[in-house]
C-alpha cells in the first residue's frame, strides 16, 4: 500500500490501512484498507458479522486493541483516545443508536459538546427533524425507533464535526422514515459533510453513496464507484447473499 498522499486539497479525509482489531482475544479485523475523500459519501457493505461496525468503532478509537494505520486529515489517530478523536471532528452515530434513558430528549440532543464552530443550530436541526421539537421533554428512550434515530443523527450535527460515521441508520425503520433519513444525508452531503456509512440496505445506499467497499471476514475485499454499480450487481449479490 502506498503512503497516504501529503496534505494537499486532494488528500483523503480518512485513510485506513492494514487495520486489524481485536475484541479481547478474538481477532475480528484482518486488514481493512479504504479511503474517504472530502465531501464523499462512502458506504461499507457486507454481511452481518463481517466487521463493518468494528471498523467504525476502530476509527472512533473505542476498540481496545487495534493495529495498522488510521489517519484523519493526515494525522495518525491509530492510538488516539476516543475523546480526542471526537474533538478532532469525527462524529459517530452507533448502530444501537445510544439514546440515553436517564436523559430527556433535550439533554440527549445537547450532550455531545461542540468541538468546532460551524455546527447546525437547534433551529436548523428542528427544521430537519420537526418531530424532535415536540418531544423535547420526553425521556429519550420513550421515542419511537425512527425518532430515536433522528435524535442520534441530530445530536452529532450540532457539534461542528464535518466527518460523520453512521452505522446502519435505516435498520428496522419504516420506509417513510428511511426516506427522511435519505433526504437528510443528501442534504448534509450537499453542504459539504463527509460521510462514512454502513448499510445492509444497498438500495438505500445507492441513493446516497459515491463509492462502496465490500467487507468480508474482517477484510475489505472489493470496492467500486456508484457509476460502476450496475456492472458489479452480480458480484454484489454474491457478496451480500441477497
Amino acid at each position: 500500500m502506498a503512503e497516504a498522499p501529503a496534505k494537499t486539497t486532494g488528500a483523503p479525509v480518512l485513510s485506513v490501512q492494514n487495520l486489524e482489531a481485536w475484541y479481547g482475544e478474538s481477532h475480528i479485523l484482518h486488514g481493512i484498507n479504504f479511503n474517504v475523500n472530502a465531501g464523499e459519501v462512502v458506504t461499507l457493505l457486507g454481511r452481518n458479522g463481517a466487521g463493518k461496525t468494528t471498523t467504525l468503532k476502530s476509527v472512533m478509537g473505542i476498540i481496545g486493541k487495534r493495529t495498522g494505520s488510521i489517519r484523519f486529515n493526515n494525522e495518525d489517530i491509530t492510538r488516539t483516545s476516543s475523546d480526542k478523536i471526537a474533538r478532532m471532528g469525527v462524529a459517530f452515530c452507533p448502530e444501537e443508536r445510544g439514546i440515553f434513558a436517564s436523559l430527556d430528549v433535550r439533554e440527549n440532543l445537547l450532550l455531545p459538546p461542540i468541538v468546532r464552530p460551524g455546527g447546525l443550530s437547534l433551529d436548523q436541526i428542528f427544521e430537519l427533524f420537526p418531530n424532535l421539537k415536540e418531544r423535547l421533554n420526553s425521556q429519550g428512550t420513550k421515542l419511537s425507533g425512527g425518532e430515536q434515530q433522528m435524535l442520534a443523527i441530530a445530536r452529532i450535527l450540532r457539534t461542528g464535526a464535518r466527518f460523520l460515521m453512521l452505522d446502519e441508520p435505516t435498520e428496522g425503520l419504516a420506509p417513510v422514515i428511511i426516506q427522511q433519513i435519505g433526504h437528510t444525508i443528501a442534504r448534509l452531503k450537499s453542504e459539504g459533510f463527509t460521510i462514512l456509512l454502513v448499510e445492509q440496505n444497498f438500495r438505500f445506499a445507492a441513493t446516497v453513496a459515491d463509492r462502496y467497499y465490500i467487507v468480508e471476514h474482517g477484510k475489505v475485499i472489493d470496492g467500486f464507484a456508484n457509476s460502476e454499480l450496475q456492472a458489479n450487481m452480480d458480484k454484489l449479490h454474491t457478496y451480500l447473499g441477497v
Binding site: 478509537g61 473505542i62 475523546d83 471526537a86 474533538r87 440515553f100 436517564s102 436523559l103 457539534t159
Partner: peptide, 24 residues
Amino acid sequence: TRLGANLRAATENPTLVRAFGINV
C-alpha cells in the same frame, strides 16, 4: 444540570459519552 446530564449519560454508557469528546 448539563454537568449532571453528562454524569448520568456516562453512568449509562461511558464509551459512547467519551466518543462524543467528553473526558470520561
